[in-house]
Every structure is written in C-alpha cells, then in structure tokens.
C-alpha cells in the first residue's frame, strides 16, 4: 500500500464506496425505490436527506438504487465487451491471415459509425430491456477492446521470446497463455477502467435520452431526465445523479491512470 499515490488512493476509496453502495442498496436506502413518500421536489430535510423528486419519491433512495442499476449494467457491459473483444483480438493476432482480415475489416466497419448513433439505430427496433442494453453496449464497445487486444498481442507476437518458444516446439495454447497473455494483461486491465467509465456514461446518456433503463426502474441517467424540468425553477435535483456519475468516472479514471503508469514504468519487471 505504501507506494500508492494519493490521487489513486482517493480514486480507490470512492470506487470502492460506490460499489459497496450498489451491492447493499436495499439495506442502505431509507425508502423503497419507487415508493411515493412526500410532496413534489421537497427540499432536503432530516426526513428526506436529499429531498424528493418530481413525483415525490425519496431522492436519496432513488440515487442508491439508481447507482445499483447503472453500475450493474456498466459492469456487465464491460465484462461482455472485454471477453468478446480480447478473445477475438488475440485470435486475430495469433492466427493472422484471413481470420485477422475478416475480423479487422468488420470492426473497421462498425467503428465507422459513431457508437451512440449506431446504438440508437439498433434500439429503434429492439425492445429496450436491461439485457438488450447490456448486449448492444457490450458488443458495440468490444470493437475498441478488440483493436487494443489485437495491437498489444501483435506487438508481443513478433518478439524474439515468442519466436524462441515456437522454435522450441511449444503449442499455440502455451504461446497465447504463457508467453503473450502475461505481457498483455497490464494494458488491458488499465483499459478496462476506461471502458467501464465509457459504459457508465453511455448507459446514462441513453437513459437520459429516454432510450435506456425504463421507469419506474431507477438509474442515474434516468433520474436526470425525470428531474430536468426542475432546473429552470432552480431546483438542482437533476444535478445530483449527474455529479454521482462524474465522481464515479473520475475515481475510476484515477485508478486506471495509476495502474497504467505503474505497469508502463515497470517495463516488464516484477508484477
């Protein structure tokens, strides 16, 4: 622990806090998620710590449940994007030839459309449910993971130690898992943080546009949408979830930055 810079510590602390909150949401939230307990946009009080929302639900409870939904979707999306992207990326790098060409050109095609626009096109015909959201976001984002994983693996695959392993007669599985993977892990782990942030921002944006998580289910982007009319009357309820998104994203960013710096400065030493 002693070598962790303060910025990364702060990042770790808040990231941990948000994940714990997401895990134990039902225990922490003072009221139910969709329970109407007070008047419209009541200010902060001892009864409602953060006040109430546009139809009189406790804002703190909705924030906690909303965080749970947002973090759940983002985590699942990240996992899907990583598993798909890195497996296909490694496969393309190691097999080369037409497999590589086919996969890479298809990814080029997907990436030539802005992700949000493509997601909107797809969501216009798909039912908007949480599994569909995870699937669409995860698969669209896996293009970026694919590119990184492929690039990293291609760089490593041309190193002399990989050639030495091939000359020794090692099998492809050994080369992927024992020679390439240990060296590709750190940039991928750092990228994971950035992909997670992107997922949080992405699902929040979709929900804010009304095309993500559907009410009464709470999520941070949706809470902004529900309360945005309040802004013009000077009621800042819509800003709260947005701040939550920002702090989560910054915290994860700080951690990812630290992981990346730590691993690049190691230049392949212990770790």
């Amino acid at each position: 622990m002693k070598n962790i810079p303060p910025a990364a510590l702060i990042g770790l602390f808040f990231t941990g806090l948000y994940f714990l909150m997401a895990l134990f949401a039902p225990l922490l939230a003072p009221y139910g998620m969709a329970e109407i307990v007070g008047g419209v946009w009541e200010p902060s009080s001892s009864q409602f710590l953060l006040g109430t929302d546009s139809i009189g639900r406790d804002l703190l409870s909705r924030m906690i449940y909303g965080g749970r939904t947002t973090i759940f979707i983002a985590t699942m999306g990240t996992i899907l994007s990583f598993v798909t992207g890195s497996i296909l990326g490694f496969l393309a790098a190691v097999s080369g030839g037409w497999v590589d060409q086919l996969l890479s050109r298809f990814v080029d095609l997907l990436m030539s459309i802005p992700t949000l626009i493509f997601a909107l096109v797809v969501l216009s015909v798909m039912p908007v449910t949480i599994p569909v959201l995870i699937l669409v976001m995860g698969l669209l984002d896996s293009t970026r993971v694919y590119r990184l994983a492929r690039a990293v693996a291609v760089d490593i695959a041309v190193m002399d130690f990989v050639e030495a392993a091939r000359l020794r007669g090692e099998k492809t599985a050994w080369i992927i898992f024992r020679e390439i993977l240990p060296n590709a892990l750190s940039p991928l782990v750092a990228e994971m943080g950035l992909r997670f942030i992107f997922m949080v921002l992405f699902v929040s944006t979709l929900s804010f546009l009304g095309l993500g998580v559907q009410p009464p289910e709470a999520d941070w982007g949706g809470i902004v949408k529900e309360n945005k009319e309040g802004i013009v009357y000077g009621i800042p309820a819509a800003l709260l979830p947005a701040f939550a998104i920002a702090t989560l994203a910054i915290s994860v960013n700080l951690v990812a930055d630290w992981v990346l710096n730590r691993t690049t400065s190691l230049k392949g030493g212990r770790g």
């Binding site: 804010f208 902004v224 802004i231 800042p236 947005a242 701040f243």
Partner: peptide, 29 residues
C-alpha cells in the same frame, strides 16, 4: 481536462444552464 472527460455531456449542459441561465439569467435555458 481529465475531469471534463469524465463528466457526461448532459451534466455540463445542466450545470451551465443552472448557473448561467437560471441563477444569473444571462441566456435562455
């Protein structure tokens, strides 16, 4: 810049709207 990359676009939008349009009344929201 690190901070603003981590903030969703709509938050920047509403914060500016809240501060400049609503609180200061300079531009229309």
């Amino acid at each position: 810049t690190l901070t603003s990359i981590s903030i969703p676009e709509f938050l920047i939008g509403y914060v500016l709207m809240y501060l400049i349009a609503v609180k200061l009344g300079w531009f229309s929201s």
